[in-house]
Amino acid sequence: MEAQNNWVTLIAAAACLGSLGVMVLAFDALLTFVGWKQKKTEGTLKEAQSLSVAQLRPTKSLVCLRGQIMRVGELLDVHAAQPLALIRMRVEVYEYDPIDEQNNWRPWGDKIKTTPFLLADPSGEVWVDPAGADKTRFLGPGSEPTPEQISDASRILDLPLEGLGRKRARYQLWELRQGDTVTVYGAVRGTGAGVQVEKPPQGPLVITGLDRAALERSQAKRTKLSMGLAIGLGVLGVLLLCCAGGSVVVGLLRMSGG
């Protein structure tokens, strides 16, 4: 009877370890896919050809240029002395998370607004259409806004902060303005007036205050982190399955020995 109980206990432990191992490997597969996407993006950015404005020709391939925002197509904030080309604000609230079963910072709102802008380098000027620009990976570090900046950003982005009520909140703000120097990765489309930089059919449209070297280092770190976590979880999942199998083998040996 005791041997039978031990066998049942071993089977239960093996099933638990096996299930956990399968779950870990499933999550590892997802993380591996994310890492592969990050690696692909890293390669895409590295392959982009660095050009001056004067060298731009229509192409669907990704090109990289760096220059200064000279003018914007639309005033996002009519009161600003230095007009905005891009503004993004992310809001998080501190509240109970039913998944973690504890209080935590959770996303509440995240909006971006852009307008076409004229980019200039020593060789010339070109209009950039920021529609479809990636807002989450390449803008660089945001800043902690002042109460006045929070109020202005919520108005421009139509982000009604009244909905927060009395919740504890934190904010992160990104702004690119006339006069700022930016790096742009995009495709070049021919227009009646010349060329325009815009989102490519495939690949990201990147607009950032970071220079090319800093941006590519940042992307390489994300890729390394994702792949490292994927490898670690893969090893953990395999170990759990091995432990599950080992438990079954030990149980069988004990049963046969008994």
Rank of each mutant, 00 (worst) to 15 (best):
A3N: 10
N6A: 07
V8S: 10
T9Q: 14
L10Q: 08
A13V: 04
L17M: 11
V22M: 10
V24A: 09
F27H: 05
T32C: 08
W36C: 04
L45G: 02
E47W: 11
L51Q: 11
S52Y: 05
A54H: 15
G67V: 00
Q68T: 09
Q68S: 08
M70L: 13
Q82R: 07
A85S: 09
E92A: 01
V93W: 06
Y94F: 15
Y94Q: 02
D97N: 15
D97W: 07
I99G: 05
E101I: 00
D110M: 01
I112M: 11
V126G: 02
V128H: 01
D134G: 01
R137V: 05
R137H: 13
P145G: 06
E148Y: 09
S154L: 03
S154D: 12
I156T: 03
D158Y: 03
K167W: 11
Y171K: 01
W174A: 00
E175L: 06
R177V: 02
D180W: 01
V182K: 00
V182F: 02
V184Y: 03
Y185N: 03
G186F: 06
R189G: 02
V197F: 05
Q202S: 15
P204S: 14
P204T: 06
A213I: 01
Q219I: 03
K221M: 14
R222T: 12
L225R: 12
L225T: 09
G228I: 07
G228N: 09
V238C: 08
V238I: 14
V238M: 13
M255A: 12
